[in-house]
Amino acid sequence: MHIHYISEENSVLNHFLAQIRDVSVQQDRMRFRKNMERIGEIMAYELSKTLHYTACAISTPLGTKETSKITSPIVLCSILRAGLSLHHGFMSYFDEAENGFVSAYRHHYNNDDKFDILVEYQAAPSFKDKNLILVDPMLATGQSIVVVLEKLLKEQQPKEIHIVVVIAAPEGIKYLQENLPSNCHLWVASLDDKLNEKNYIIPGLGDAGDLAYGEKL
C-alpha cells in the first residue's frame, strides 16, 4: 500500500486539524463541518498531483495557452454519515466526479466492546476502470473500510483505489495493509498514537459524525 502523510510539513491543514480536535471549538457544528470540508479540499489538491493529465490548448480572449486537464474519471464515495463534510470538500475540487454513498457502522450485539461492521445501504455509480476515492474521516480499526471495499469490489474493479482519512491510528493502517491490495493509495492527514480498549483513536477528536450532525440514538 502506498501511504501519503500530508501534515508532516506545517501548512493551513494543521490549523484546521487543530480546530476540529479542540474541545473549545469543535462544539460549533457548523464550524466543524466547514473545517472538515476545508480539510477535504486540501487533501483533494494533494491527491490531484497523482492523477493523470492530458496536454491541451485553451483559447483565451487574447490568444491560445498550452496547459493540461485531468483525464482520470473519478468516483467519489463516502461512508455515511461522518464522511459527508469531507466528501463536500472533494466535490469542490473534483466537480465532474460521480458520487456514491455507503452506510457502515459498528454493531454491538451484546452492548459490550465487541462489534461487527454492518453495511446496510449502498448507492454508487459504476467505477469500472475509473479512479475510486473512498473518504472516511476516522481510521480506527480499519474494519469499516475493508468491509465497504470488499462489498464495492465484488462486481467491478476500479483503475485505482484511493482511501482518504483525516485521522488514523497505527493499528488501522496495519489492518489495511494486511487486507487490501498492495496497489491501493492511503492518504492520511494526521497519524495519532493508538487505539484504546474500546477501539477509539487516542488522542483523536471524538465521534466525527456526532460532532458534525448531532448525537445519534
Rank of each mutant, 00 (worst) to 15 (best):
E46S: 09
E46D: 12
E46R: 11
L47R: 03
L47E: 03
S48C: 04
S48T: 00
S48Q: 05
S48W: 02
S48A: 11
K49G: 06
T50R: 09
L51T: 02
H52N: 10
H52T: 15
H52Y: 05
Y53V: 00
T54C: 07
T54K: 14
C56E: 01
C56V: 06
C56H: 00
I58F: 01
I58R: 02
S59L: 14
S59A: 13
T60S: 04
T60W: 00
T60I: 03
P61L: 03
P61W: 03
P61E: 07
L62H: 04
L62D: 06
T64V: 15
T64F: 06
T64N: 06
K65W: 02
K65S: 10
K65P: 05
E66R: 01
E66N: 11
E66M: 07
T67I: 07
K69D: 08
K69M: 15
K69L: 12
I70Q: 10
I70G: 07
I70N: 15
I70F: 07
I70Y: 04
T71P: 06
T71D: 14
S72E: 11
S72I: 02
P73H: 09
P73S: 06
P73W: 08
I74T: 12
I74A: 14
I74K: 13
I74Q: 12
L76W: 07
L76F: 09
C77W: 03
C77H: 05
C77V: 14
S78I: 09
I79F: 13
I79C: 15
I79M: 10
L80N: 12
L80P: 14
L80H: 14
L80M: 15
R81S: 12
R81L: 08
R81A: 13
A82G: 14
A82M: 07
G83Q: 10
L84N: 14
S85D: 11
S85V: 07
L86C: 11
H88K: 13
H88I: 13
H88F: 11
